[in-house]
């Protein structure tokens, strides 16, 4: 694997439907073939990565991929809820507190997405894996671009949330032991009205669940905050490289550049940009008699134009890898290996 991908953490990002998951699998396989103990992680609920690696789709923990190579290869499915439950178990001061959180109705319905906690849980798991040190390389697949931006900013959002006044307000003893809303006179006229507004809009029942949730969760927050800051540093460190995958064609260029800039502005290290599934160019045009030939020749020219446009806008020195559209999507180890090799050889060129 080229120097551009020698990082211990490789995060594959890009829009939906561009073949990110397959590419992540082939990069992981390539890494293991080169002797690195490698873990491929995905939290795509369709479990495509597991399918392509031929592991049991019902396995919830790391499953080792049957493969003879110098390095070991395993695949895992990230489950945000499971990671969250594990986190609660780790930080809760006692069993009673743990139970109080896990059985709270608010936790059940809302906690998963509150302030990006769902995405945060995935990054948290990444941090856990890399600090355990079992794997010399981790390749992480991510949800489509826009969610990926949420995903990468999850640690910031958690810290922002914990530092904001939201938590202070949420932790106020809003309810007396009988479950009635306490007078909030101290907040003054405006404060009372704001609270009354939430009360009227969403109903007392939900507010009560929320308050209970935050109170039960309070002892966990400091641990959370510390960890979120560490995760944030990890994503910006030299240990981490982002591989940005794009589809072919000029209409994709703007989106790809946008995401590349967002990553760099956030202080993350952009590795190779991959244009995937590029239609090959016609070697001669004698064959353009049939509809299919004419269309494919046009697609070949279109995709070439897209690659060149992206290359010039990215700046000539940035590594850009174009991978050809294959006859069939790689799903077995042999075709994944071929894709990984194509990537590596194009990167070195």
């Amino acid at each position: 694997m080229s120097a551009a991908l020698e990082a211990p953490l490789v995060i594959v990002v890009g829009a939906g439907g561009v073949g990110k998951t397959t590419l992540a699998a082939s990069l992981a396989l390539d890494s293991a073939r080169r002797g690195h103990d490698t873990l491929a992680m995905t939290f795509d609920p369709s479990r495509r990565l597991k399918d392509s690696l031929g592991v049991d789709p019902d396995a919830v923990t790391e499953a080792s991929v049957p493969f003879n190579g110098p390095g070991r290869l395993a695949a895992s499915l990230l489950d945000a809820r499971q990671t969250f439950d594990r986190l609660v178990a780790r930080y809760a001061p006692d069993e009673a507190a743990r139970q109080r959180i896990l059985t709270n109705r608010f936790y059940d319905h809302l906690s998963g997405t509150l302030a990006g906690m769902l995405e945060y849980m995935a990054v948290e798991r990444l941090w856990e894996v890399q600090s355990e040190g079992t794997w010399s390389r981790v390749v992480l697949d991510t949800p489509p671009t826009r969610q990926a931006i949420d995903f990468l900013q999850a640690p910031e959002r958690i810290v922002g949330f914990l530092d904001s006044g939201a938590l202070r307000i949420a932790l106020k003893p809003w309810f007396d032991p009988d479950g009635h809303l306490r007078a909030t006179a101290k907040l003054g006229f405006v404060g009372r009205n704001v609270e009354a507004f939430f009360d009227r809009m969403v109903g007392l029942e939900l507010l009560r669940d929320m308050a209970e949730f935050f109170q039960a969760f309070a002892p966990l927050f400091e641990g959370f905050r510390t960890r979120a800051l560490e995760v944030q540093r990890l994503l910006r460190s030299d240990r981490c490289r982002f591989v940005l995958v794009s589809g072919p064609g000029p209409e994709r260029v703007a989106d790809t550049l946008f995401f590349a800039r967002r990553l760099q502005e956030a202080g993350m290290r952009l590795g190779p940009v991959v244009v995937n599934r590029v239609h090959p160019e016609a070697t001669h045009d004698a064959d353009e008699q049939l509809a299919g030939h004419r269309l494919l020749a046009w697609l070949g020219r279109r995709d070439r134009r897209g690659v060149e446009e992206l290359r010039s806008l990215l700046g000539g020195s940035h590594p850009l890898v174009d991978l050809p559209l294959l006859p069939d999507e790689p799903t077995d180890l042999a075709s994944l290996t071929a894709l990984g090799e194509a990537f590596t050889s194009r990167l070195v060129d």
Binding site: L110, G112, A115, G116, F161, S164, A166, I169, V194, F198
Partner: peptide, 15 residues
Amino acid sequence: VLASPVHRHFTEGAP
């Protein structure tokens, strides 16, 4: 209300 972090985090987070 709109400036309140409670509103922001609630609407951002509530699925």
